[in-house]
Write a protein that binds this DNA or RNA. Structure first.
Lengths: 195, 195
DNA sequence: TCAAAACATTGAACTAGGACAAGAAAACAG
DNA sequence: CTGTTTTCTTGTCCTAGTTCAATGTTTTGA
């Protein structure tokens, strides 16, 4: 499957698009290869892309006032990553970083090309709204887990949700995603192992 | 200001609408008064409304496996409340409750009337997408706070964000929103008071 | 108006998870 | 292949926040 089929199928899960609409979509996307460990968005910058992950894995994170990363999102194949923290609409700089964790391939919108897509094929507005709804739903669920579950429970649920990630990324990133220290995750895993 | 002006102004912050578009909007909304302490959405139900709060205050929450509430959202005047946890699109029942905390007035969409609005005035799709983006941004920020800040810091930030809420709702709800115990919030406040 | 219920405070004992440190194991670049 | 860096583990000590319980305060509603 080529990457345009990949993104077309992914968006067609929410709304069914005509051949013409999909052609407009594909013609507006920019293909970009990005090597491992590249910071695609620095703190303070306004994010000027929305990227569909064709291949690879990125993380999006904040840095807290003690200098610790808090990972907000892992984006792997077929996920979208961007930072909309008010910044598009209020020109507030974001506190967010986006960084590749593997060599990656993306299909990318700039604000302008996205705008043009929505003008020429307005039905995409709906698909993107649904994407946001899901994203919100996932984030709310994660907030719930963060508040109400133990480290062990959170880790087990993480494994179900992202079964391949532990093989792909360093463990301390997972700890950061779960909101626990790397050392404590190690202890949780040790406990799990001897059961 | 009557309530239609109120909702029109609120949505016009994101997209400017014509008189005709706003008339369509207003004609499709249902006005509903709901007394205090009414559960508008029970766990397991599919949420069939999106409510704009004209007046009053509601909370949206999950119940964890120990029977404790975790508050996901307070919605006061000019906010929207609904539960989209996948349910609209996958018919999965939600774990969410929505409950009024004061006598409330709403302007309400059903899925059908919202659909009709978007068909007849598609530019609203954009305004609702922006609402979701902000909602996501707020939720991500809250996740960050929950993971990386102390109870004291979270409470202070909460006070800035919702300065009127402590006068309007019981303190243990605020504790639940912050992800700390009611007792500990009381201690945090005691500490604050003597400074 | 008053009893009941809900809410808030405070203290004492406890625990999940954090911070630090030191060593082992992997991964990585030259 | 080998030294360097990054990652992972394990132990010890520590603390922010929890739980439980008792008491006081406010709100409610009949």
């Amino acid at each position: 499957m080529d990457m345009y089929e990949q993104i077309d199928q992914s968006l067609s899960r929410y709304v069914s698009f005509s051949k013409e609409e999909l052609e407009i979509l594909n013609s507006l996307l920019e293909y970009r290869k990005v090597p491992k460990k590249t910071i695609m968005l620095h703190e303070g910058e306004v994010c000027n892309f929305e990227a569909f992950v064709v291949k690879g894995c990125v993380r999006k994170y904040f840095i807290d006032h003690n200098g610790f990363e808090v990972i907000l999102q892992f984006a792997i194949e077929n996920a979208w990553v961007s930072d909309i923290s008010f910044s598009h609409y209020e020109d507030k700089p974001s506190r967010t970083f986006i960084e590749t964790m593997e060599d990656c391939e993306f299909l990318i919108f700039s604000p302008e090309t996205k705008e043009e897509l929505l003008k020429r094929a307005p039905r995409f507005e709906r698909a993107f709204r649904i994407l946001f709804e899901r994203n919100l739903s996932v984030t709310q669920n994660r907030l719930f887990n963060t508040i109400s579950k133990t480290a062990m429970e959170k880790y087990l649920e993480f494994l179900e949700m992202y079964p391949t990630l532990p093989q792909r990324v360093a463990q301390h990133y997972i700890a950061s995603y779960l909101g626990i220290s790397a050392e404590f995750l190690s202890k949780v895993r040790a406990k799990l192992a001897k059961q």
